[in-house]
Nucleic acid binder design. Structure first.
Length: 909
RNA sequence: GCGCGGGUGGCGAAAUGGUAGACGCGCUAGUUUCAGGAGCUAGUGGGGUAAAACCUGUGUGAGUUCGACUCUCAUCCCGCGCACCA
């Protein structure tokens, strides 16, 4: 019987499901390993061949760990709340739940065909009330907590209330607190709660009708849909992520993530250490605080700049400048975020008419307003040092403000000197100091004189947590006398009400305003819902204990599974999900609900798989198509052609004619009797006719081939184009592998003793597979299988003692064929429960000098050498021996290069 | 501007400082099969040769080294991230 992947794959997929082969159970007697994929958002388009790349890698790793004896948790679920389903609902009137359920079913059937070892009993869906009960619970816990900077962790809000009542906290005295009304108390507590309501500038997207978080906006456009976003002041629910900035930053050091991803998070958190200084400004001598990282340049300050949104603008504008300032503010306000970004090179600004006093020099300097100063960062006001800051420089040049260099010998006639190097001059007590020293000296000076203080700023903002949307978790909050009040825990989950239409209500309120009786005990419930990242922030915890109705995760389950050992997913979540999850987890850790403060110990980012589009070239004005190699002789238009009509860049002419009516009578100019298509690497999308569906690959080649091929394509972390033409290679390998066992219906497997050569081939593979899988180098592992097959094929080896371990080795990559062969070899239990073959190094040691070998690290040989060594050629006997490097005379051999028969080179130390 | 990755055959790619291009695709030749497809054998960086020999070759230039795709410096290009962040 030939390798019949179709029946094999179906058979074992059902068998695994029936036998619950991959069900994970807590078992304290066994070592655990938790392998997690970033769960997908089930979109209407279904999976293309790029989506499963990471899933295949994690599945291989899971199965590998299981063979190594670990108790593996490998779950899957769906991130099923979110904008696209709701946009679709608005357009079609279909309930998002309906489309979401349908999309999930499609995803599931696509995933099932690939033969993943998921424990589907642990599936979670973020839109399931039994799941989002715990999202709402976590929100209430955050609402019920404050960040205690002394303990450096979140604590119950009642502890803060107790302090406010007795000793006061911050600028709130006990007298003020105790005299405050309920409403005032609520407002005050919002200043400290982890989940709080507050007014800030938000990213408002009119087309989507909702606010968005910073990571949901890119280049002034919404990430979902690409609609323009504008800044707007609104009162919103927010999460105090900024309180965790330092811990989120410090925690990175302990994580086994790639440097680039850590760097992205560091950039996003944006720590900057500097100084805050007070300048007395205007007639009223208003103290204005500025933030700077370069106090050393204080003698070079020639003006100040306020952000247009700064609260001080009004007070510092003198009557004579009022009209000009108003005009400028109107101009700024009119601009969308996108225009602002596009025009960053244009320098704009206006003079307030006021002057401030440099606290160190006493000098009077003009105060300007400009949009290059951001209200949201630092204090929204800066001291400008045009000589040593390029933005200040551009501004000074434009408005003819003085530029005073304060570093010896620098030339500021053409551009500013931003580097932190050189010796200070024109700077009073700082003169002669190196810049780096001067920064510290100036900081000390300013603090000692009481002019300012050291201050650390972060770019990381609190997360805006409300969305004016329907398809998300409702906030478990109602407004009692206008005071935001937590719903009692026993009322959770607060389920989404049915509504008839998904558009915002006529009065501009969120869609939930359309719900009948959206109240609790007669009080109105919150009408916005939570954002997409809410449900994905703790899903990895829920997998540990998905059916628990009393807790997000039980203590036992949490203490057993602890945290994710390996997390695989795309890099697009670097500054969104991966920040929020870490924040969320740290919060739960602070409050004692989980035992690890970091959720994902190791993280791998799989690359994207791009499409490979094919083109035909139509000669302009005709219905004649010219082959790619000849197109230069004609004037042509490039037309995307469906890649299913193309094989190895050769066009299926009949298929092409049948594809579209207008091509039915197409003519072709061929080269060597064939039409060669052009190609390009582009994103996979329907409009480019380059989408490859994994189902189709499973139909023609089988899931095992798909799995092997996706791994073989190249390094996991690298982005690469999908090119179906290489797939035959791995498919051939599987067919060859099958033929080691069967020739037609004849079983070839014999019981003989393996030879040393055969054992060598096997153990080379075992060693390579262990090494490569641990290093996530799956493409070279697949190569190693092929090499082993070549070697064993040349040896005509059909011995059980070799083939049986081969089946185990291959099973993480190609589980179906291996399961089939495993059972045919007489086993009754799954190959997934076998043990990984033990590696014996001595089998792989070379016993002839066929290859170059070295003595450094892995020792393969010792060499008998004469005591006197001649660089140009040494006669020596080389003996195979797996021992460590020996001495030659009193010198250590560091390396010896050997080619057949002679020593090429010797290195001594 | 700052930061992080990368540049190796026609293509995807391998190479602890030690025979560069493993493995696969594609291509070429041979062979097998009624055929479709597939299988098997050999070859395949470039130049050179009847075949060898030989010369050359990992973006570019320098350096360290007996020896560099690999390490260091400079430079050019590509990808990604962050960015009027003071």
């Amino acid at each position: 019987m030939e390798y019949d992947f179709k029946s094999i794959e179906q058979k074992w997929q059902s068998w695994w499901a029936e036998n619950k082969t991959f069900q994970a159970k807590e078992d304290p007697s066994r070592k655990k390993f938790y392998v997690l994929d970033m769960f997908p958002y089930p979109s209407g388009a279904g999976l293309h061949v790029g989506h499963p790349l990471g899933y295949i890698a994690s599945d291989i790793f899971s199965r590998y760990k299981r063979l190594q004896g670990y108790n593996v948790l490998h779950p899957m679920g769906y991130d099923s709340f979110g904008l696209p389903a709701e946009q679709y609902a608005i357009q079609t009137g279909q309930h998002p739940e309906v489309t979401t359920t349908r999309n999930i079913a499609r995803y599931r059937s696509q995933l099932d065909r690939i033969g993943f070892s998921y424990d589907w009993d642990r599936e979670v869906r973020t839109c399931d009330p039994a799941y989002y009960k715990w999202t709402q619970w976590a929100f209430l816990e955050m609402f019920d907590s404050w960040y205690d900077p002394d303990a450096d962790k979140a604590r119950p809000i009642r502890e803060l209330v107790a302090r406010l009542e007795t000793t006061g906290y911050g600028d709130v005295t006990p007298e003020r607190w105790n005299a405050a009304s309920e409403k005032e108390k609520s407002d005050l507590l919002m200043r400290w709660r982890i989940a709080y309501q507050g007014e800030t500038a938000v990213n408002w997207c009119p087309q989507l009708g909702t606010v968005l978080a910073n990571d949901e906006v890119k280049d002034g456009l919404s990430v979902r849909g690409g609609y323009p976003v504008e800044q707007k002041k609104m009162t919103q629910w927010q999460l105090r992520v900024s309180a965790y900035a330092e811990r989120l930053l410090a925690g990175l050091d302990k994580l086994d993530w790639t440097d680039s991803l850590k760097e992205m998070q560091r950039n996003w958190i944006g720590k900057s250490e500097g100084t805050e200084l007070e300048f007395l400004c205007g007639e009223q001598q208003l103290p204005v605080t500025v933030f700077t990282t370069r106090v050393d340049t204080i003698y070079g300050v020639t003006f100040m700049v306020l952000a247009p949104e700064s609260a001080l603008v009004d007070a510092l504008t003198v009557p004579a400048q009022r009209a000009a300032v108003d005009e400028y503010l109107t101009y700024v306000k009119k601009k969308t975020e996108r225009e602002r970004i596009a025009e960053t090179k244009t320098v704009t600004g206006v003079f307030t008419g006021s002057y401030g006093t440099n606290p160190v020099t006493g000098e009077k300097i003009p105060i300007w307003i400009s949009e290059y100063v951001l209200a949201g960062y630092g204090t929204g006001a800066i001291m400008a040092v045009p000589a040593h800051d390029s933005r200040d420089y551009a501004f000074a040049k434009k408005f003819n403000l003085p530029i005073v260099p304060i570093i010896e010998g620098c030339d500021v006639s053409e551009e500013s000197f931003d580097a932190k190097e050189g010796k200070m001059c024109n700077s009073g007590f700082l003169n002669g100091l190196e810049v780096k020293v001067a920064i510290e000296t100036a900081k000390d000076y300013v603090e000692a004189k009481g002019l300012g203080r050291r201050k650390t700023n972060y770019r990381l903002r609190d997360a805006i947590f409300s969305r004016q949307r329907y398809w998300g978790e409702p906030f478990p909050v109602y407004y009692k006398d206008g005071i935001p009040t937590a719903l009692p825990l026993e009322k959770l989950p607060l389920t989404l009400p049915e509504i008839s239409e998904f558009k915002p209500a006529e009065n501009g309120e969120p869609p939930l305003a359309r719900a009948k009786d959206w109240t609790y005990e007669g009080w109105p419930l919150e009408k916005s819902t939570m954002p997409g990242f809410a449900g994905s922030s703790a899903y990895y915890l829920r997998y540990m204990d998905p059916h628990n109705d009393n807790a997000l995760v039980s203590r036992e389950a949490d203490e057993y599974w602890r945290s994710v050992d390996l997390y695989i997913g795309g890099t697009e979540h670097a500054t969104g999900h991966l920040i929020y999850s870490r924040f969320w987890n740290k919060f739960l850790f602070d409050r004692g609900y989980v035992c690890e403060d970091e959720p994902f110990r190791k993280l791998i980012n799989q690359g994207m798989i791009q499409g490979r589009s094919s083109f035909v070239y139509r000669v302009v004005g005709t219905n004649t198509f010219v082959s790619a190699g000849l197109k230069d002789g004609y004037q042509t238009t490039e037309i995307h052609v469906d890649i299913s009509l193309v094989r190895n860049d050769r066009l299926d002419l009949a298929g092409f004619k049948a594809w579209r009516p207008e091509f039915a009578d197409a003519d072709f100019i061929l080269e060597d009797g064939e039409y060669i298509c052009g190609w390009a690497v582009e994103k996979m999308s329907k409009s480019m006719y380059n989408v490859v569906n994994p189902d189709d690959i499973c139909d023609t080649y089988g899931a095992d081939t798909l799995r092997l091929y996706e791994m073989f394509l190249g390094p996991l972390e690298q982005s690469k184009p999908w090119d179906t033409k290489g797939i035959d290679g791995v498919h051939r390998f599987l067919k060859r592998f099958w033929r080691f066992f069967y020739d037609g219906d004849t079983c070839l497997v014999s019981d003989g003793e393996p030879t040393r050569e055969e054992l060598k081939a096997l153990h080379k593979l075992i060693g390579k597979e262990q090494e490569d899988i641990e290093a996530f180098s799956f493409n070279t592992t697949v190569s190693a299988f092929m090499i082993a097959a070549n070697e064993l094929g040349a040896l005509k080896c059909n011995k059980r003692a070799i083939l049986e371990p081969m089946v185990i080795l291959l099973s993480p990559f190609a589980p179906h064929i291996c399961e089939e062969l495993w059972h045919r070899l007489g086993h009754e239990t799954s190959v997934a429960d076998a043990s990984f073959p033990e590696y014996v190094e001595s089998y792989t040691v070379e016993d002839s000098c066929t290859y170059a070998v070295s003595f450094n690290g892995k020792t393969r040989f010792t060499v008998d050498l004469p005591k006197s060594l001649d660089k140009d050629g040494v006669e020596a006997a080389v003996r195979p021996l797996d021992q460590t490097a020996k001495y030659v005379g009193d010198q250590t051999i560091v390396k010896v290069i050997v080619v057949p028969g002679k020593i090429v080179n010797i290195v001594l130390k």
